[in-house]
Design a protein around this nucleic acid. Structure first.
Lengths: 137, 137
DNA sequence: CGGGATCCTAATAGATACTG
DNA sequence: CAGTATCTATTAGGATCCCG
């Protein structure tokens, strides 16, 4: 499992009794950390269209390395968001597909996506102002 | 701006015309990457209660280092999600507070939080199953 | 085609010490 | 109190080669 997966459960155990609110936040946080990595959300969104093979997915994402796509898919599979089906043909054919759990993630993620889209210009402006007032190192 | 902020705008520029859908995804992604870091969401959630001083925030979060809290707050401030007010008393007093933009982020984040909370047991089980079937390296 | 294994770099987190 | 500076450990991510 090489590059460290920060474990939701462990994190939960550690913080569950340190206050309901904070507990909830750490749960949110662990999920955000999980799907907030560089490729997970994009992958989930692309898989929303339907099942997809490894290399097709790779092409559609475009600038992802083979390694990261593999790791991303393994992570999503481990969390039960994506299923992996092997067709033992020659050449081999492997299809990835969103599970129900994976599909259920779309709604909140798209809500956040909408927020991002609605406000990204405002964020960009805020950054410009900030950078203006805080000269480069 | 030391530890690299992956720049929303730049990312947007690069991907805006490579398809509306993918463009949207990259936008979502950049926002997720931003707020998906280890502390941002937790910080925003705690600030939702009202203004808070640096060290009080640090205490409430508990296991954050001074450095990371500073970096997190700077990032949030730069994105216009948090305001920083200095009261030039002795000792100095600095209050952080959510801006309107920051407050508007709460809704989608809480939606995701709810999802996380509703499904984290299912995710944990999925992981257990996966790890069962995929013995440790 | 769909990866696994390996090597390498860059980004990020934490610890510690110091400062106005 | 509210940071900055510095140093180190850990992680994420890319490149490359290989294999069934």
């Amino acid at each position: 499992m090489e590059p460290g997966y920060n474990d939701v459960t462990e994190h939960l155990e550690k913080h569950r009794f340190s206050g309901e609110f904070k507990g909830r936040c750490h749960t949110v946080n662990s999920v955000l950390t999980r799907i907030g990595d560089k490729w997970s959300v994009l992958t989930v969104m692309l898989l929303a269209d339907g099942p997809c093979r490894f290399n097709e997915l790779k092409r559609r994402i475009g600038d992802i390395s083979q390694r990261m796509l593999t790791l991303t898919l393994r992570g999503l599979e481990r969390d039960g968001l994506v299923s992996r089906t092997i067709y033992p043909t020659i050449p081999p054919r492997v299809e990835y597909e969103l599970t129900d759990l994976g599909h259920s993630l779309r709604e909140p993620v798209e809500a956040l996506g909408k927020w991002a889209f609605d406000h990204h210009d405002r964020i960009a402006r805020a950054r410009a102002v900030y950078d203006q007032n805080n000269p480069e190192t």
